[in-house]
Design a protein around this nucleic acid. Structure first.
Lengths: 332, 332
DNA sequence: CTGTTAGCGCTTTCAC
DNA sequence: GTGAAAGCGCTAACAG
């Protein structure tokens, strides 16, 4: 591999001049620029990014922490980020936190040790305080899907309250009055917000949603199935079940099928996230769109602003929308 | 961030000595080693990986090219690789080729420009010749899921012939005689091999599989649906449809449901890959396990051998296995 | 607009 | 077993 030195020799200019045409950050006369370009071409010169990083103290890479690498949800997020960063000529390093506080911290340290210029993190377990302190470090940090007090401008979030609200609203609009809800874990803010949204909508619309009509799951398929069983044991037969994510909706559908409950006629189902696998479900799942791909893109834009002084327009609060498919029956 | 220089000052030794205890590649007396370690501890010293790379001409990172970042299939592969590389303390860069020759090459160049010590690639479009020349470069390359003549030792592959064979064999063992097959595109070797496996099994077992009972798809869900329609138009009603991947199997199931064909009673289905979404299908899909996660791990081990002189035991030819679930009806 | 020069933080001969 | 010193390939003042 040829070096900047060889290019400068061949072009008959100094190292600095070559560096300038590479970085386009200082005026170089058209003539010399041309000479340099020809020399680079001839030698097949490619700048050594490592050396660039060391000298400039910038690695032109950003680190991304997701919970899992093999999930449709994080997949979309990664694609959104990669896309945007690639356009900006920056590299992306992905690491997985596996939903464990220790792994999350370890992965963040790993990314930091790689001299990332910025971090985009989707942390589920690490505390608000930890996140907060992270943003105080010298590398910029953007947080996805979590609103942390004091640093909201670093957070790209979804209005989960509204997500819950519109789901319940839609259910009622379709003539349902016997609602049930499977919530996510109560120690997660997004889960809580969705629940509050559902409750608020019911209240606003004059529909009763007793506490006993709410089950708490853990976002897993199994907890969706379990919820169905739980309602049946309680003797409650809702006409519609709203789930805090698609995974649980899928579990609920499976259980219902085992029990020969017809979906959507006897039991309608609403999911949340609009994960890609919803298309494999039968009937196709009506759900709340979680624009995680777009949020990833926005997080990327934000980090580009923070770490590389770009001036992208930022809006960091996203609104969910209903995705109407076939799992909700209309009662007239 | 403290540097190696500060550590050496504090420990009262030279730079070189500190470097030695970091890299454990030369003898250092217990005493001084201890001193250095204490100094590193006190300063919270972390080696600067960029500087290490520049000086040693090794980046301790490997690049991975997949077709898509947001796919369950590649997700598993990425997890397998990340896992193994992480254990080895190496970094992984992921890039997407999007099934386009231009993007594949561009992404490979991107990874190379990042000074990866090795590359693991899953290329669909680039030619054998290109792949071949790639392995001739100075960075080691491992190829996943494609057997390229002359460099088989660099390839981690699945026995696709056997995959097709056991699928057909299983179908026949379950009492089916009216088989049909939806193949993948004919310009892909793996697709061809699966087809040949199916044909061979039929022949060996004395079952007829006319050419008209074979449809050619493109691995997409839609082409699975289309295949069903095509068979019906031809007036052929198979008792079992073997698909060259799960995606097409899913499409076929959808179409069958629309046509009110009962699965598996009237039509059994076998998929291929055992992708994670198969659990969302109904009935749960009987399919051929494609151990892509394990293959990713193995590719990682191989690249560790090639790029870092590790001595992992390699077996680069994987065997598929049937995963029996509920989409095949047994005819006695 | 262009060249000179001093590092960036580390590894790696080569002596001792 | 340890230290001195020469780079790795590039950027970024600074001077002209």
């Amino acid at each position: 591999m040829s070096t900047i030195y060889e290019v400068s020799k061949l072009a008959g200019v100094s190292l600095a001049t070559v560096s300038r045409v590479i970085n386009k950050n200082a005026a170089v006369s058209e003539k010399t620029k041309e000479k340099v370009k020809i020399a680079m071409e001839q030698l097949g010169y490619r700048p050594n990014t490592i050396a660039q990083s060391l000298a400039s103290n910038r690695s032109n890479s950003i680190g991304v922490l997701v919970s899992q690498l093999d999930s449709p949800f994080f997949g979309e997020m990664m694609v959104g980020i990669e896309d945007e960063m690639r356009k900006a000529g920056k590299q992306v390093l992905f690491a997985a936190g596996h939903n464990l506080e220790s792994m999350e911290k370890e992965s963040i340290e790993f990314l930091q040790s790689r001299n990332c210029d910025g971090l985009i993190v989707h942390c589920e377990q690490a505390s608000d305080e930890y996140m907060h302190s992270l943003t105080k470090g010298k590398t910029s940090v953007v947080i996805v899907n979590r609103k942390i007090p004091m640093i909201e401008d670093r957070c790209v979030t979804l209005d989960n309250f509204k997500g819950g609200y519109i789901a319940a609203q839609y259910a009622v609009a379709q003539g349902h009055t016997q609602l049930a809800y499977v919530s996510g874990p109560h120690d997660k803010k997004d889960s809580l917000e969705r629940l509050q949204g559902v409750k608020a909508a019911c209240k606003d619309l004059g529909i009763e949603l007793e506490d006993s009509h709410i089950e708490t799951g853990d976002y897993s398929e199994k907890s969706g199935s379990d919820a169905i069983s739980a309602f049946i044991e309680k003797g409650y037969r809702p006409s519609i079940l709203i789930c805090a994510n698609d995974e649980m909706a899928s579990g609920a559908m499976k259980r219902a099928r085992e029990l020969e409950i017809d979906i959507p006629k006897e039991l309608s189902i609403i999911g949340y996230d609009n994960t890609s696998f919803t298309k494999y479900l039968h009937p196709e799942l009506t759900t709340v769109e979680n624009p995680i791909g777009k949020m990833g893109k926005m997080a990327a834009k934000l980090i580009l602003n923070l770490a590389y002084d770009q001036k992208n327009v930022i809006h960091n609060r996203f609104e969910p929308e209903m995705v109407i498919r076939n799992s909700v029956y209309r009662h007239d």
